[in-house]
Each structure stands twice: as C-alpha cells, then as structure tokens.
Design a protein around this nucleic acid. Structure first.
Length: 426
RNA sequence: GGUGGGGUGGCUGAGCGGUUGAAAGCGGCAGUCUUGAAAACUGUUGUGGGGGUUUCCUCCACCGAGAGUUCGAAUCUCUCCCCCACCGCCA
C-alpha cells in the first residue's frame, strides 16, 4: 500500500497515477477522513494527557492518605469524553485502512501511459521455426502422442485442468528441475519449497487481497487460500521482519503449483493448456535495497530470459503499460514465447518491481546506518516467473515438432530425461 | 482430536492494580584503560503516530489480538489467535 502521509503530501501525483491506470477511486473522501482523524486524534491525546496527569495526582494523594474522591469524580467525566472520541477514531481508522488497501501502486515514470495497446516490445529474441508441413497445435500433438489427457482431467476434476501422462509428465518434471538448477547454480538463488496454502494475512501482504478474492480458491472452514503463485508464500517469509542491511539482497526461487479460478475469463484462451486452473511454475523472488531495485529488475528479467534462450524458444520482452501492470506493481515486463502451432505469443513470465508497496503491506523492513544514524526502512520486493510451465510446454511441443509427428527434446533438458532426444524416441 | 504449560524490548527473563516504557543479564553502540586486542569499568541502546519554533522539543499509544471492570491495567475478567510439551490418530 501507499503511505498515507505520502498521499496527503502528493495528492496530485496519486490522482495522476490513478488516471493513468484508468481507475476511478475517490481520493477526496480518503483525504477528508485523514484530516478528521488527525483532528480527533489531537483532541483524544490532549484528554489522555490530562487523564495521565490526574492519575499521578490521585496516586500521590492516596499515598499520603489524603482524600482523592473529588479528583476521582471529575476523572469519570473525562474518561467518558475520551470513550466517545475513541469510538469515532476507531471508525475513521478502519475506514482509512480499508481505503488504503484499495489504492494501487504508482507506476514508474518509464512505464508507457495508456491502455494495453501502448505496451511496448522492448526486444525480440530468436526466430520462429519454419516447417515444410502444417504444424499441429499442442492439443493435437498431445492427443496423438498420448502425453496429455484433457478429457480425463475434466472427468476427475473439471474443465481447464491438466493431466500429464508418461513422457508428458516426465517433460513437466524435467522442466521444473532444469529451471531450479539454473536459478540456484547459475543465477545465485536459494531454493525454497513453501506451503501451497496460505492464510489471509499473507494474501493481503502481497496484494492479492482484498481486491482479487473472487479469483482465488479458498478453504472456507479454515480461511486458507490455495496460492495463485509462489510469490505469496515466498514474499511472506519475511512478513513483519526487520532484516539486517548485510543480508540484502535476498534471492529466492521456488517451484510450486499455482491455483487460479480465472473467474470471468470463460471463453478466453479456454482451448488446451493456455488458461488452466492449476499449473506449475518456478518463481523468483527478490528482497533488495531501494536504490538497487530497478537494476535488480533488469537482472531478474535476464534470469527469466536465460531460461527461454537455453530452451531455444523465440520470445519477446514487452514493457506493460500503466493500465496493464498489476495492482501492486510499479513496473512490469512480460515475456512472451512464440508457439508455432497456434501461431501466437504466449505470456510465460511476468517480472515486476513492487518497490516498497508489498513491503509496506507485509511490513518487511531492514536496518542500516544512514548519515551516521540508525534507520529502519522498507525493502523493495520483486518477483518474476522463471518461467510458467504449461505455456512453456506448449511452446516446446509446437516449436520442436517434427514432420513424423514426434517432438524433439531441447538439448538442455536431455540430462533430465535420461538423455532421450525426442518423444517418442525414434 | 485430548490434556497440561506458555505468549513481556534484538535475545533470555522478572514484574501479577498506582512514577513500570517496563528490573536483571546477554547482545549492540560510544568512551576510559592498552602499542593493538581481550578483559574490566563508565555511559548509552525499542517501535509507531500526532503537534511544533523540526540536527531538537513535546504529547499519545504499544507487554499476542480484541472487548470489559476501574479514577487508574503488562498486572483482574471474558473471547479469539498463536506457540511448546505429552497422548491419540495419521502420509
């Protein structure tokens, strides 16, 4: 969330940011509630000071065995006035807290302003494969090779779930291991295997709640949520902690399954594997000093690109516009891999800098000495997919398909599939 | 699921109705001593918020969370959350 004082002192900048995100959020109500709160707070605190003083006097009167009944009587009245004002204060506080949670992060100045048509392709890597035959889609390939069984996944659970089978399952597992090895051994991340269920505080800490509750799978009896991304449990590792400057930066990577209801997206991308309720993802999460976060974002993006380059998948880097970046992000790049069968660019990664927006919500800070003084500051958090699996599997299947209907296995994955070169083996 | 014991500052841990923001110890920081270090000694050391004459002053809040009793609550009452130990069940 944003700092209330920042909003108070930079109301115009916040209004501009909301407009750039094309959001109608009433700032005036918030600002007047804030003004009223500070006024009431002043009154309450003056009365409390009076009360504290009187209590000291009562205390010493009683110690000297003198009569304090008059003083006690007059304090009853003040206590009642304090109660009334505190009641109002409490109302204002909860109103302000609720309002603050609905205000999104302010986009960085480098983010293109406007609707998604303003998204900017930063660079493109690789060449789309050429075929001397009509390339099949992943759905056709999966069925032909018997490596993914969507009808049975539907029978077991419902539509838009995946059941990998045989070498399909093996390919999925190979990708997970390949990515984790790459990030831990080459890019310096520490591997985490977090819980797949998180509590409400964690979901609020990273910004999924309260806004996106309807998109989440929730266990009602326990008020727990299935994670929509590893970002949630991994970022919340340091919730309410104060780190030491020397600990930063922290790089974590985690494989998890991700669960999304995708409410309201029916009819969009619903064929095959492009939009499913459960998918695998390897995520990267960083905790860094504020002054480093934009350099760290570029490095994070590079780490995700490395995955696609090693897999030999053509992709493009897209800088998202102000209306396309997520609620909590101040800047975001998407990586889109090209899938030759469906002939489309598929979003396989999203790399974002949240600056201190999540750190404020989750209360993640660090201590350092600045100008000879000890200070506690919020860290900056970042995360990026490195990368999302289902869509990457699509791209591999469609781009590496051969005329005979088999699929070549990218070189970097072969150590993870017993050296196998294709599915089925030739 | 059952029973018992707990949640106090960076940590350990005292306090169980009235100068207690909180003893003591450890740790951290600064100083004295020393060629240097250690030891010893001395001082200092929480967070958040409001206001101001804004390298400082002042006020308020905070002893798991919330509510209550009281002139006054870390301390008493209630509700909830969490942790630990043992037992049961279990991949």
């Amino acid at each position: 969330m944003l700092d209330l004082r920042f909003i108070r002192e930079n109301a115009q900048a916040v209004r501009q940011a909301l407009q750039n995100r094309n959001l109608q959020i009433d700032l005036d109500t918030l600002l007047s509630a804030d003004a009223r709160r500070r006024q009431v707070l002043g009154e309450v605190e003056a009365l409390r000071a009076e009360k504290n003083k009187a209590n000291d006097q009562i205390s010493s009167l009683l110690k000297e065995k003198k009569d304090a009944s008059q003083k006690i009587g007059s304090m009853k009245e003040i206590a009642a006035r304090i109660d009334a004002l505190e009641e109002e204060l409490k109302g204002l506080d909860s109103k302000l807290d609720a309002a603050l949670l609905t205000i999104p992060n302010i986009p960085h100045s480098s983010v293109p302003v406007g609707d998604p048509s303003h998204n900017a392709v930063v660079r493109t890597w690789g060449e789309a494969p050429r075929f001397d035959f009509k390339p099949a889609t992943h759905v056709e390939l999966a069925e032909r090779l018997d490596i993914i069984d969507l009808p049975r996944a539907t029978k077991i659970t419902g539509s838009n779930f995946i059941l990998f089978k045989g070498w399909g399952a093996r390919l999925e597992r190979a990708l997970i291991n390949f990515m984790l090895d790459l990030h831990t051994k080459k890019h310096g991340y520490t591997e985490i295997f977090p819980p797949f269920l998180v509590n409400r505080a964690s979901m609020t800490g990273t910004g999924q709640l309260p806004k996106l509750e309807e998109d989440m799978y929730r266990l009602k009896d326990d008020d727990l949520f299935l994670i929509p991304t590893a970002e949630v449990p991994v970022t919340n590792i340091f919730r309410d902690d104060v780190l030491d400057e020397a600990q930063l930066p922290v790089y974590y990577t985690a494989y998890t399954a991700c669960f999304r209801r995708e409410a309201g997206s029916y009819g969009k991308d619903t064929k095959g594997l492009t939009r499913v309720h459960q998918f695998d993802k390897v995520e990267m999460v960083k905790f860094v000093k504020p002054e480093d976060s934009y350099d760290e974002l570029e490095k994070l993006l590079g780490d995700a690109e490395d995955v696609l380059q090693l897999l030999g998948l053509p992709y493009r880097v897209v800088a998202l516009s102000t209306q396309d970046i997520s609620f909590a992000a101040s800047k975001c790049y998407d990586l889109e891999a090209y899938a030759a069968g469906v002939g489309r660019w598929l979003e396989v990664s999203s790399c974002s800098n949240f600056e201190n927006f999540q750190a404020r919500r989750a209360n993640i800070r660090f201590r350092r000495v600045k100008d000879g003084k000890k200070v506690t500051e919020y860290v900056h958090t970042l995360n990026g997919s490195g990368v999302a699996l289902a869509r990457t599997v699509i791209a591999i299947m469609e781009n590496y398909q051969q005329k005979d209907g088999s699929i070549m296995i990218p070189q970097c994955l072969r150590p993870y599939v017993d050296g196998r070169e294709s599915i089925p083996s030739s």
